[in-house]
Computed example of a mutant assay.
Amino acid sequence: MVTDIVISVVLLLLGIAVLAVIHMCIVGRLFREGYLNGDLVQRVNAPTVTISSEDLDNLPCFDYAGGIGDRGTSNGPGDCAVCLESFKVGEKCRSLPDCSHSFHAQCIDSWLLKTPICPICRTHVVVRSRSFKNLVEETRVPGDVTIELT
């Protein structure tokens, strides 16, 4: 019985030693690759991209019209992920260009001014200026283009 205890303690210490060696190998590899020599800190402190309030005006905006079977509010995909409120018919909403997620306009505007990523899928929001060339490409209407100046 005493020999069983001694064998168990020896195996326990041997297992701890093996885990310590594996840990030292991993940490040594990280040091050799430069992860702990400042490269990781540089990536964390890298400047973040920001969105100005003028850029927000270039994001698509629409009035919520409701879905099939809606009675003024919606459930599920008709909820704003920022404020967690349901969209109501007639509210001003905004759609993000790359992922097409929709939010209340004022909710997503305040979110994007702080963090320029989609709160649902974490896609970086890239605001493109809406030049004449972009507008023509977005409409994808072949033939003549009529511009109405107001």
Rank of each mutant, 00 (worst) to 15 (best):
V18G: 14
F62C: 08
I7Q: 15
V126R: 13
F87C: 06
I147C: 05
I5D: 02
L135P: 07
L30E: 15
N134L: 09
L14A: 13
L113E: 01
G66I: 03
V145S: 09
G15V: 11
S74V: 06
L13S: 06
D144I: 14
D39R: 08
I51H: 05
I7L: 09
H23N: 06
P116G: 03
E148C: 12
V125P: 14
D4H: 05
R122S: 07
V21A: 10
S8L: 09
G72V: 11
Y35G: 02
G76W: 04
V89A: 04
V141N: 09
V49T: 08
R122H: 05
V2W: 02
V126C: 07
N75A: 04
R32G: 10
G143A: 03
G143L: 02
N134P: 00
V145R: 07
H101P: 00
V127R: 00
I16P: 00
L30Q: 15
L59G: 04
D144F: 04
L12D: 04
E137C: 09
F132A: 09
D4F: 02
R130G: 08
P97D: 06
V49P: 03
C93Y: 07
K92V: 02
M24L: 10
K133D: 14
A65T: 11
I147K: 14
S131A: 00
P142Q: 03
D109G: 06
G66T: 13
G66Q: 07
K88I: 00
W111M: 13
F132H: 06
T48L: 08
V82F: 03
D39Q: 02
F87E: 11
V89F: 01
V141T: 10
R43E: 12
A46C: 08
C61F: 01
S52P: 07
N58V: 00
P119K: 05
S95W: 01
C93H: 09
T48M: 05
G78K: 00
I108K: 08
I68P: 11
S129N: 14
L96V: 02
D98N: 07
C61R: 08
R140P: 01
C25P: 02
M1D: 15
